[in-house]
Design a protein around this nucleic acid. Structure first.
Lengths: 138, 138
DNA sequence: ATCTTGACTTAGACACAGTCCAATGTAGGA
DNA sequence: TCCTACATTGGACTGTGTCTAAGTCAAGAT
């Protein structure tokens, strides 16, 4: 993920300890943390980091297109660092676990012209819900 | 929508003025109000109705399967009385307007077995995003 | 028609997620 | 090294939703 930092510096991002730490926390492929979880983990690496900075940084990463914002439950938004491969989400209705998944087919094409009401479509988000093997077993 | 009230009474729902008013506000096909919008409209019909009652009633309608909870933006949840026809949502990224839409094809089938990670799938929610004709024009 | 009772409603306090602000600190160019 | 525009901080604030204890009432029983 240090290439991320490089990319951002190239775009004029000022590189601070706080931002580095937030990027580091988001590193890894299958994390979907809430802002407060990011803050908690960032605090372990840099005790004085403030909540506001974490929110600011996440917001910047989202508008720079480096991180996706996912809200699957109407509660806290989650942040998904896997922004460079199109994917959708599979959520366990019991425990809330999220997995990245890759449906087949062209999802946008599933919406017929007469159902588009003159909108210019840009994206589609799909959330599959079900019960994960763990919760099924229990 | 008075058949809704009948249905609910049949299920042992106690019929109060407050509940009647909430059901009345949700009547109509293409409304997607937030809880506070429902409360505002309910207050016009029954001035003393409290916020807590609106939240309670909406929650009950949702668990009874009469109303759908939709959260498209990570802000306030919206309540969709059109719960008896499967449908998805088309959201304007500018103004937030929501339309019910009906994609073609079997959405669940788009997720290949090897992408299901052992989950027992139950539902799929699709949100199409784009810009509505109104906002396009402006 | 009235009584009774458990379910419903209420106001307000509380909790959680997120935003805003003025004061302070600092990265990185000159 | 200095400067300054940008970043960070903590705490107050907002919006959305939940909880509670006390009061009220729908509807079945009498």
């Amino acid at each position: 993920m240090s290439d991320l930092l490089e990319r951002l510096r190239g775009r004029g991002w000022r590189l601070t300890a706080q931002r580095r730490v937030v990027a580091e926390v988001l590193d890894g492929d299958h994390v979907h943390y809430t802002a407060d979880e990011v803050h908690a983990k960032a605090t372990e690496l840099l005790p004085e980091i403030s909540r506001a900075t974490v929110y600011n940084t996440l917001g910047e990463l989202v508008s720079l297109g480096e991180v996706l914002e996912v809200s699957t439950d109407g509660r806290a938004k989650r942040y998904d660092p896997n922004a460079h491969h199109a994917h959708q989400h599979l959520v366990c209705s019991r425990c809330g676990t999220i997995r990245d998944v890759h449906p087949s087919g062209d999802l946008l094409a599933d919406l017929p012209t007469e159902e588009r009401y003159g909108f210019r479509l840009s994206t589609v988000e799909v959330t599959y819900r079900g019960v994960c093997p763990n919760c099924s077993a229990a």
